[in-house]
Amino acid sequence: MNSRKIEILVGLFVFLGVAAFTMLALKVANAGIGGSKETFELNAKFDNIGSLKVRAPIKVGGVVIGRVENIFVDPTLYVPVVSLAIDKQYECKFADTTNVSILTSGILGEQYLGISPVIASESSQQSCLGQAVAQSSDDLDELFGVESKALKHGDMLRDTKSALVLEELIGQFLFNQGGE
């Protein structure tokens, strides 16, 4: 067979392989938010994480903004700590009063982290980013004396809500019944 035809067919073969890879990477794995993007890390302590898994999505109002990076037990307090890898563009945007809870999608679905963000004040965002805080600011926070910080890499989230565990719920329900 002449070599030009072979070259074309081999080219077609390699092209198909590359096309398959592209399809798998984009359409099947969605490399968009795969972790290839830059993230920053936050930690959150919970009393109980239920069946939350590493790589579970982190959502704000249903939109995925990151994934659970790691789950471990705090060596001094013996409570589970979840580290969250969140898209870099949200760094210094949320205040440290932001609430994070472990939720379940559907009745039998997988568990994920839901964040209800509190938007950080202008000045705390700037100081978090390392910019000089505008001197002439008459910030509301300052007036009321509330110390709110914007969340940056390595910070700890305090306001957390643990996973609902069915047995505990039933136990609570029975206890309340008994009390009445």
């Binding site: 890879f21 798998l24 990477a25 359409k27 099947v28 794995a29 490399a31 972790g35 290839s36 995925v64």
Partner: peptide, 15 residues
């Protein structure tokens, strides 16, 4: 079909 697949499949770990 596609979106749940995308949420579960990771480029590094699986592909």
């Amino acid at each position: 079909f596609w979106s749940i697949m995308q949420a579960q499949v990771s480029l590094e770990k699986d592909i």
